[in-house]
Design a protein around this nucleic acid. Sequence first.
DNA 1: ATATGGCTCATTTTT
DNA 2: TGAGCCATAT
Length: 745
Amino acid sequence: MTQKAQPSLFAPFSETDDNELVPGYRRPATVGVNLDDLNEAQYQAVTTIDGPVLVIAGAGSGKTRTLVYRVAHLIENGVAPESILLLTFTRKASQEMLWRAGRLLNESCSRVTGGTFHSVANLLLRRYGGHIGYGSSFTIIDRADAEGIVNLLKSSLGFTGKNKQFPSKRVILNMISGSINKSLKLEDLVTEQYAHLTDHLDDIVKLEQHYQTFKYDHGLMDYDDLLVNWKRLLEEAPDVRETISRRFSHIMVDEYQDTNLIQADIVRLCAHTHNNVMVVGDDSQSIYAFRGADFYNIMRFPKVFPDCRIVKLEENYRSCQPILSLTNDIINNATEKYTKTLFTRIAGDLKPRVCGVRDERDEARFVVRKINELRRSGTPLEEIAVLFRSGFHSYKLEMELNTEGLDFEKRGGLKLTESAHMKDVLAFLRLLVNPQDNLSWNRIFLQLDKVGPKTAQKITAAIATAANPFEALRKYPAGGSSKQGIAKLSQLFIDLHDSGQSPSGLYEIVMGYYEPIFQHLYADDFPKRQKDLDQLKSIMAGYSELQSFIDDTALDPPDDSTVEGDSGGEKVILSTIHSAKGLEFDAVFVIGLADGRFPHGSAAQGEQWEEERRLLYVAATRARQHLYLTYPRELMTPDRQFRRVGMSPFLAEISPGLYERVESGGDTSGYYRPATRYEPPVLSNRPKREKKLTLKDLPVGTKVQHPFFGIGTVKKTSAPSSLDVLFDRHGIKTLHLDYAKLKIM
DNA sequence: ATATGGCTCATTTTT
DNA sequence: TGAGCCATAT
């Protein structure tokens, strides 16, 4: 279990180590790596101290180990840990890597700088960015905020949802981000990749311009700006470029196939004084093309660094041969491939299992049963992972795990800071840092009674441009019904301003104001949400600067597991495939391998299709010993209809000899019928599993159990068949008897 | 004119 | 679950 000791992954810069290479640094006698553990190719990579190195590495070939060992080797050879920069791609992977490094390198590791491109960009811009563009007072916004802005703009520009064809805000943001990362004009990107949207080109371009202006006007920055500004900083401020390049004498990049052009440029610029760069990548695992990643970066690397050394890692140290044969087969079906045949010496002859299941519920039960079997035979829960294409594919499984009492940790999907109540609280704090932050103002006004979108926008427009928005708010001539609310709000900001408190002190003041609103707004489930806020409080306690807290929450949102900490440890990992990148597990389930779900329904033939295939490759190569691939034969559509679906084409392509088929079997509930005699079920004709409950069976005060919400008490019933139940952990829920699977306790 | 509640519909992936 | 739309309440 990875535990973050501090909110940031970094060895932060201290005020004194500004640019000179830690004079007087004495290298440790040894940091304790044994290079005999390495194979020839790994040894080459590890022991190269100077000059550029390109490492082409297959799945499970010990990339991370190679990188960590190299760090150790560098330190043993007199390189100061402070001057090593380790760039990785995803948060989880970078945590995992630093954790491994920590075990090996002990105290030396805490002095290595490491993290994602975005967090390092933030660090450097904060420190050196004053020279350029934005200056130092901006608020970094996350995806959800960016969507909010686009939303706002869509309505103010008159692009309402009447036009079904108009792309969703998410698609628009992907386009904007894609065009930046690929250094393409938005127009070109649309014609190339979103041909079906060419009709809306003008609107999209207009929206994009407004989006950029909006951000600039309100001192906001999104993820892409971070990288763009980092690059600008390096290009346009020679003294800073010099300083940074000297500061980090050795740069290493993991998952290089996932970098985009900007990131490749950044690496080149950072290394310009020494060329001590080592990048590690695998073109078969490129799954971020949708946001501008370009695996030709790998091909280009030798051109950018002409004297570079190329090392290939082809031996797999992770999976047993049957798994490897299957994953090789997946990637061999690719239309465009760069040959690299992996082999292994790992023992194990268990073939991967492919299992067709009736529907998601059956799938969930199958997975839970297998998890229990694995656990009985000695596999710890945290060595078992269930992977899927999209966040919501695991909902059924989550319910099933809950009823079984199995703990799980979900990765990917909604972050803590993306939930409404967290954004509410953060909005107040953000305004203290950046009073121009229009979005946060808007959010806060909307909380007030008798204030809707129109009024909120009016007030925001009136004050956010003022020199002192707080003062402007105090003087704002609020009309009739909303007057009191605004006065209270104004008073809050005066209190906050006068207090001069630490972040946790500010939190207390904000909560004094927000608590009643909070309980009113989320009347049905505020107890559960309250826990999140308590977490926020404990996180904030670790900060002395509000600004750095705001930045970290945008870039590196805390997840529940790191904060709750000592909740027992043993947890199954549920993860989107994208978030599972770079990790490995003894047993892996890949679920939802149905046509239309994987590959994702809108993936076109061609490059998108190939990326989906690589995605399956990434998923399957996470497994060490046990690999299960399941596909439901029937899925629920959004309108609660069941639809028959086929097996994922990728699964169908695999030679049958490479896997073993298993039946989902063992389902004793009686409603399972063999798939051979399949008939499209009609909901009302289904055999009833239990006698149907009516309201007469559930008078007020009855204790009931719900598969997801747990145990609760009936508070109110209303004809014909709905009832309010108070659950311990989820507050009051209104349930419908026809759908809710309630049991009387 | 604006706020609010009920209804319908669709729902990628990440920093 | 949220976002958009429409009808009704204030």
